[in-house]
Simulated assay, not measured.
Amino acid sequence: MVTATGRRYETAADRALTYDDYLGLTTLLGLQRPLSTHPDELHFIVVHQSTELWFKLLAHDLRRIVGLLDADRLPEACTVMRRVNGAMTALLAQMRSLRDLPPHSFHAFRGLLGGASGFQSGQFRELEVCSGLRDEGYLRDLRAVCGGALPGAVVRSLGQRSVAEAHRDAARRAGLGDWSALYTEERAATTLYVLSEQLMDYDELWLRWRTEHVALVRRVIGGSTRGTGGTAIDYLERTLRHRFFPYLWESRDTLAAAPAGEEGPRGGTAG
């Protein structure tokens, strides 16, 4: 840029975009600030910070999937859902890396964390509600451990459509009368079937994540010690029953109960 006096100043537009500029690496790599001198604390911070970045991508993509389902663009929803499950797989592997954090290493800096806890992650709660976890038992437990009120992220998400709601509505528009009817030879070739199985994969990946999280907590701090946020492990164990798409799981019960050679009932609505 040239000023009125003829002097030239370099602006951002004059510079070629660099890898560092585009990703904000100077800022990003300066966000890891261990509270102790223990070398393993950096691992703990990086895993949790990158987890929140994956959460951000998941929330973004799940909202896209709701819009695609509402527009009956099922093939595109399948494409995005495949990436969502890839992100979940990466998240699971990332958390597993914390199994290599020795208990004595974690306790060397645990006391410095105060009340900071992964339980306070607003994005995690947003993902649960956006996916479809809205039953009263879940909300009651959450109120109990959050001092009687739901976190703001949950309240906001409850006002928006979930993936489960959009999926059920798309199935109705596709003429599916009962979820067990999805699991027939003629339906197995449909995009709705493929997407539904991807949603089952997503639900199962979260079940694995929760199960391994409980195991990790027991491995690092034991079963009787409360987390840094005061959460008891029995609360974490109760979350293992959560399902985002219970109607897909329950449809298996209907199929198993049908006599040999017969399909499940086709009556009713897919809800």
Rank of each mutant, 00 (worst) to 15 (best):
L199P: 03
H43W: 05
G159S: 06
L205H: 13
G30W: 15
R8Y: 15
T3I: 00
T18L: 02
S97W: 08
L255D: 07
L150F: 00
L158N: 10
V163Y: 11
A144D: 10
A12M: 13
L133R: 01
R140E: 12
T190M: 05
L31E: 11
T26G: 06
A4S: 15
Q198M: 13
F109T: 05
E52L: 09
A93M: 13
I45A: 01
T269M: 06
R266L: 03
G114H: 04
S196M: 09
A260G: 03
H107C: 08
G6I: 09
S121L: 03
A164W: 02
A149S: 11
A4N: 14
E250R: 15
L57H: 11
D135S: 10
A174Y: 07
D253M: 12
L101S: 07
G222D: 09
R96K: 15
A108P: 05
A256H: 11
T228W: 01
A188L: 04
G147D: 02
A257C: 01
A13Q: 15
T51Y: 14
R266E: 07
V155L: 13
S196K: 05
G268C: 03
F55A: 09
W179C: 08
G268S: 10
R156L: 13
G148P: 01
W179L: 15
R238I: 06
L35G: 14
D72L: 12
E128P: 00
L113A: 05
H104P: 03
R99E: 15
A90R: 02
A87K: 04
E165F: 06
D201M: 10
S50Q: 10
A260S: 11
A258I: 08
L25H: 04
A174H: 08
L17P: 00
R238W: 03
I233K: 05
V155N: 03
T184K: 02
P246Y: 13
I65W: 10
E186H: 10
R161A: 12
L240R: 15
A59D: 14
G137N: 01
P103E: 07
R168G: 04
A166K: 00
R252D: 03
Y193D: 14
V129I: 10
S157F: 04
D21V: 09
G159V: 02
